[in-house]
Design a protein around this nucleic acid. Structure first.
Lengths: 166, 166
DNA sequence: TTTTGTTTTCAAAAATAATTGAAAACTATG
DNA sequence: CATAGTTTTCAATTATTTTTGAAAACAAAA
C-alpha cells in the first residue's frame, strides 16, 4: 500500500465509523482530510480532495469548527481562509464528548427527570418505574464521569483506561 | 404527567437517543416498549402499541434478539410467540458494547493496522503517520478496556464510574 | 393432507438525510 | 462607491434509510 492509498483508506474508514455513530459521513471525511494534512488548507482544496461541492464543504467545515475539531487560519495578505484540524487526540476526544453530551445525554436526562415524576404513582407500574430509575441512575453516573473526564488533563487521560482495567 | 404520558415520553426519548447514536429509531422504540412492559408481549401488541407494520416489528424484534437485548418466550399451549426485554441494565450495556465493538471498532482497528503498514515510508508524511499512530493506539486501548468491561460482573460495573472519578 | 394461525421475506413506496449549485451576502481593496 | 474575491445560504435535487404490506414459507392441529 502506498501513501496515497493509505490516506484514501483512512478517510473512507473514518467516514464509515462516523456514520455508524450518527455523524455525517462527509463531515468526518473532511475532518480526516484535515487531520492528515501537514498544513492548513483552503475550502477549494477540500472540494478537490473529496470531490464535493462548495456548499457542502462550507457547511461541514462550519460544523467541525462548532465541534471544536477544526480551526481557521488567516494567512497574512491573503483573503482566502485556511483550515487545520486539532491534532491532539485527547483534545479531539474531549471536544466530541463535550458536544455529544450537551446535545444528546443532557436532554435525555432531562426527560428521565420529568418522567421520574410519574414515580409517585409507582406501585401501579413497578416495571416502568424500575426501568426509568435504573436508566436514570446510569445516565447520571455517566454524566458525572464525563464531566470529570473533560476536565482532566492529557496525561490523566492517557492513564484512564489502564487504571480502569488494572 | 400520568403514567400513559410518561411511557409515551420514555419511548419517544429512547428512540431519539438511539437515532442520535446511529441506531434505528423504531428498533429502540420496540426495545423501550418491551423494557416497560411487565410481561412478555406478542408481535401484534407491539404493532398496536407503536402503530407500525408487522414486517417492521418482525425485523426489529429479530435485530433486538440478535443484539441480545430481547428474548423469546413460548407460552404453553399457544402458537404465538411472546417477547420480553432483558431488564438488567448492566447486561443491556454489556450486550450493546459487545455488538457495536464487533461491528464497528474492530473493523476500524483492522483498517488502521493495514494503513499503519504505510509507516515504513513515514518520513515523507509525518503528519499522516502521527495521526494514524495516535488513533490506532487510542482504539487499541479502548478495545482492551471494553474487553475487560464486558467480562466484568455487575457489581464491578456499578463501581467503575466511581473509581474513574475518585 | 388440508386447513388455519403465525412468522418471514423483500420489492416497492415513503420518509429522512445529505448534497448541489447558483444567487445573495459579505468584505477587502482600489 | 464600485469591483472582485470569497463565503454563506437554501430551495431543489439526489441519495440513503426505513417502512410497508401482500405473498410465501412455515408449522401445529384437524
Amino acid at each position: 500500500m502506498d501513501l496515497q492509498e493509505g490516506k484514501q483508506k483512512f478517510i473512507e474508514s473514518w467516514g464509515k465509523m462516523a456514520s455508524d455513530w450518527g455523524i455525517n459521513r462527509t463531515m468526518a471525511q473532511v475532518h480526516a482530510l484535515l487531520l492528515i494534512s501537514p498544513d492548513a488548507i483552503s475550502a477549494d482544496e477540500v472540494m478537490e480532495g473529496l470531490n464535493i461541492s462548495r456548499g457542502n464543504v462550507n457547511m461541514n467545515l462550519r460544523a467541525l469548527i462548532d465541534w471544536g475539531l477544526v480551526h481557521k487560519k488567516l494567512k497574512a495578505g491573503e483573503r482566502k481562509e485556511y483550515f487545520y484540524a486539532e491534532k491532539d487526540m485527547w483534545t479531539v476526544v474531549r471536544q466530541i464528548i463535550i458536544h455529544r453530551k450537551k446535545k444528546e445525554l443532557e436532554p435525555m436526562i432531562r426527560v428521565l427527570d420529568d418522567v421520574a415524576g410519574v414515580e409517585a404513582s409507582c406501585p401501579e407500574s413497578e416495571s416502568f418505574c424500575k426501568v426509568v430509575k435504573d436508566i436514570r441512575m446510569l445516565s447520571q453516573r455517566a454524566d458525572q464521569t464525563l464531566d470529570t473526564l473533560v476536565k482532566a488533563d492529557s496525561s490523566w487521560f492517557a492513564n484512564i483506561f489502564y487504571r480502569m482495567v488494572r
